[in-house]
Design a protein around this nucleic acid. Sequence first.
RNA 1: GCGGACGUGGCGGAAUGGUAGACGCUGGAGACUUAAAAUCUUCUGCCCCAAACAGGGCGUGCGGGUUCAAGUCCCGCCGUCCGCACCA
Length: 840
Amino acid sequence: MTGRFEPAVAERRWQARWDEQQSFVADSQSAKPKTYVLEMFPYPSGRIHMGHVRNYTMGDVIARFRRMQGHEVLHPMGWDAFGMPAENAAMERKVHPGEWTRANIAAMRDQLKRLGFALDWSRELATCDPDYYGHEQALFLDLFDAGLVYRKESEVNWDPVDMTVLANEQVIDGKGWRSGAQVERRKLAQWFLKITDFAEELLAGLGTLDAWPDKVRLMQENWIGKSRGLQFAFRLAQPVAAGDRIEVFTTRPDTIFGASFVAIAAEHPLALAVSAVDPEAARFIEQCRAGGTSAAEIETAEKKGYLAPLEAVHPLDAAWKLPVYIANFVLMDYGTGAIFGVPGHDQRDFEFAKSYQLPIKRVVAPSANEASQPIGKDPDCDPGIAVNSQFLDGMTSAQATAEVIRRAETAGWGQGTTAWRLRDWGVSRQRYWGTPIPIIHCPTCGAVPVPRDQLPVVLPEDVSFELPGNPLDRHDAWRLVDCPECGGQARRETDTLDTFVDSSWYFIRFASQPKDRPFDRAEAEAWLPVAQYIGGVEHAILHLLYARFWTRALQHIGRLSISEPFKGLFTQGMVTHETFVSEDGRWLAPDEVEAGAGGALVERATGTNATSGRVEKMSKSRRNTVDPEPIVAKYGADAVRWFMLSDSPPERDLEWSESGIEGAARFVQRVWRLSTTPKDGEGRDATLDKKLHRAVAATGEAIDGLQFNKAVAQSYELVNAIEKAAPSASRTEAIQALIRLIAPMAPHLAEEAWATIGQAGMVTEAAWPSFDPALLLDDQVTIAVQINGKLRDKLTAPRGLDRAATEALALASEKVQRQLAGASPRKVIVVPDRLVNIVA
RNA sequence: GCGGACGUGGCGGAAUGGUAGACGCUGGAGACUUAAAAUCUUCUGCCCCAAACAGGGCGUGCGGGUUCAAGUCCCGCCGUCCGCACCA
């Protein structure tokens, strides 16, 4: 039996077999060690892209590898199915978001199945299914009962045309990304989750996540942004109605004698009080509001202030009065919304002081004798020695900081505190296609939770997207209900939950899905935490932080005993492809470009010059995407999987190339030929035995470390060695082992080959090959001989030769003798079984 | 601005401080074939010398340093990419 391996036929057949045998259905009751492998679930956009293929292939290799090692593996798949694209589709194509979403799920499910992933489809879930979001509503109410949910007025970006709240990313140049309307800042009552209650825990917990990339832990650490400092109040020289003090926070209390001014945010209560009586101030505050929120605008915004008719008294010198400005660079929602400005030692304060001719004083210097050095054209932000600071003079910045905090606490005008960059998580979205927030607003009873026996609060199906805004606001049959407490006329909350809430607990629901509650604690804990979580680095902060918070919140209310959901995390690189640009700067698809006369690129349609752009992430806008489906149809799922794992290390970007996928397809056929061309023989082949055992050891180690490119290289080496070997019992065994080594990566080929060589059962159920450590070492070793660190000769010697004998052997080398030319070496370094370095 | 990662042949990339370039791709030469595809064999970092055999030199972004020995460790640059950003 020879010929080509026909993926189109064989792959379908094995996929059907796995399905019939329920090969990948995870048994929560199993006595085997349990492993939970998870890839970030996809948004059902309509089609699988290469990034999905790469992501899910990696997870699949781990899942199949652990199975072969005797683990009970949970490897589920589902759909992050709520979100805006469905509503946009509804508006554009007049289809219901649910209909659009479910059609996409069906299409993508088929595409995933065609790739032969070892997924437990019996646990499939979609977050837009009331079966899922109803349990989410129950969990939301649990958190509500525990006081972790609250409602607060907060500023949002409001699009007056679409009548919806926009995320910061959706505001472009101060205009709505869809409507193009000028975005307004508006105050809206919104629901918040108290993630800040867990700031300290979430920060400390990062320390336990040693199987996470350092990069991600660092990003989360910065996002949480803990800073220690001093919070204290400036007394106002003349109290006003809105108050007699300004609370400020600083991380540099050691610079307190360098203060030149106090600045408050435009939204600060005192600023508002001033503006009420001062139209000039009101105008300035209005200007600050109009300022955009985008990073670019913030960066270029000039530091401006308005001198308020207030005077602040320095806490350490009652005679020292500081001017108070309303300033555009002070943020109301960080710290206290007010600062004291130290121009000598802070960049922003420096710029502000320059504009408004405020004193710039040195209070920190590299050394005590540089106290009179003026501050130059840049502020000095480094720690140093306190100078010009009365009782602090001579102290280091750290000592001075501690001393100021101590005095403030003793005298009672301030105290050491911690400020966090992390804010509470606003979860209200004024959208239809999301989980309804299970709250009823009653004019007499206030916000009342929907009784548990009335869950799920199901989205109404009969909605129209003809008008802008949230259709739930217009749906009176759904919206108007009786208050569960007093029975009076009330209305449902029409905001839905941020979709990040949906993805904050799906991994728990995968592990355990009882009908009547979100999850069974014992069953969930049997699987959790996820042993290996794999996804894109773009989720390094939000999703991963929210999921960590949700898990801890469940722990806090006694629903779960684990504190971290993901033990191992891996962030894979993107799939990239070359790009092409036309003469007039349009992106061109690869098949719109050809080599013209003289080899230069030209645009096929027009014959004008084209250039190859950079290799970039596949995206529709750059027109450099490659759709996986036709590629799978042409080369087979195994070849595509194999290519996704080859060449590039998984954390780096992988460049898609035609020659790469062809190479992978070639490898599939090589393995097929080896398995279908019987060359059985007798006796051992010691060289091949060693090669095999090394390949088994190295492949296992590589997969364990998620170094799939190295595992792939090992398979190539083993295949090369088997092809060169003469028939022997060793060769026959090597082929059997090879098939198992490639099974996690190219499972269909492995099954077909396994059956062909006459092995019973499926390779999916076979055990991972073992190796004999004794065979990992050679009897003969090559010893490198260096003179002054330069390689001069290579000698073959029996392994285990002692230092003296090794040295003698090296010195006897003809090449060494020639190089030394009679001189005797000054020193000889011997590393047994490896090398000899002769210092001449 | 702050933080992080990376820099090795024509390309993707290997290398517990100890033989740089595994493996793949590309390319060259040859075999098989009427021919092509497929497949197989073989070569493929650069330079010098040489008919060949052999031999030699240079090489991991740049400049220093530590070491018997540096792609790997340390210091200083340059470049590319990513994240965050008026955070007090």
